[in-house]
Structures are given as structure tokens and as C-alpha cells.
Amino acid sequence: MIRFWEKRAKTSVVTEHPELETQIDQIRRSIKDEVKRKFAGSLAIRMVDSGSCNACEAECNALSNPYYDLERLGIRFVASPRHADVMLLSGLLTFNMYHHVMDAWAQIPEPKWSVTLGDCPLMNAPFQKSFAIKGPVAEHLPVAHHIPGCPPDPETIMQGLLEFLKKI
């Protein structure tokens, strides 16, 4: 363990690459303010994948890495829809996921918002409509905000969440 603490002290806090630092810092600060104002300091997100390629999920996971550390802003990904304020939905809304997504949405207590993530939910990705796809999502759910990208990178997701928070 001594080696670990030595490494820990040497590494210190990993700061962003200089060219990103100010921008991300700004996003972080304004997200924190919005979350504090509108959600009493803690915004809970239930992420649901309705048939993505897993890249959107990978980028959401990346939000927890030391470079972004979303949780310090009071935004948390929660395990149950019943703990959530927001459903973050990725993927094409497949035939086989349709009822499970609707179920998760129904379990989120009011007030609630759905935010779509990536190009798939709005059918803007290269995929074409097929019998196994129920998208676009907006035909089935009220979409409060959309975060575009294929996939949106962590910065874009943070930016998108901020825009959403400003909007509501």
C-alpha cells in the first residue's frame, strides 16, 4: 500500500488537458448551480439502453472517470427508476425493449423528464427503420431534451445536461 500512496501523492488530482480545462470548468460550475437550484443539490438519472451499440453507455461510464467525475456536481446515475428524476434513453427503441422501456418510464415518480441520448433514439443514426425497431422515441414518449452525437462525448453529455437543466 505504501507504493499506492506514493503514486497517489505524485499523481495528485488529474486536471484536464489545458485546452479543455476552462471550458469544462465552466460547464461544471454552471451545472452545479442549476442542480442545486432545481433539484435541491442532487439530480438522479436512470440510464436505459433501448438498443444502442453500447458506445453511448461507454461514454456515460466515462463521465465517472477522474477526468470528468460527474458525481461531484450532484448528478448521479441511479439503479432504480423509482429513485430517478430523469430517464436518459439511448438506442433505437427495439421491438423487444419497447415494453421494458415503457415500464421503466412508468416507474419514475412525477415530476419526471426523459432525455434522449445519441443519434439513435431520433432515428438520426445510419440505421434504417426495420420491423424490429419502434423508434423514433418521440412517437412514444414525451422527450424533454435531446443530446445529439454518435456517440456524444462526455463533454457533450455534460453540456447537454446543462442545456436541459436550463430549459426546465
Binding site: 438498443g51 427495439t94 421491438f95 423487444n96 425497431i133
Partner: peptide
Amino acid sequence: FYKYRAIEKMVEGMDPLQAAPI
């Protein structure tokens, strides 16, 4: 197979280069 998007069927009839992004 919850994520089944029917990709095998989707790309049928496409030009190989057109199918590449899918």
C-alpha cells in the same frame, strides 16, 4: 436479444459501401 435490430435484414439490398456505417 432485447437489442435485436434486425441488422442482417436491414443491410440486404444495400451497396457494400452504403452498409459500412451501419
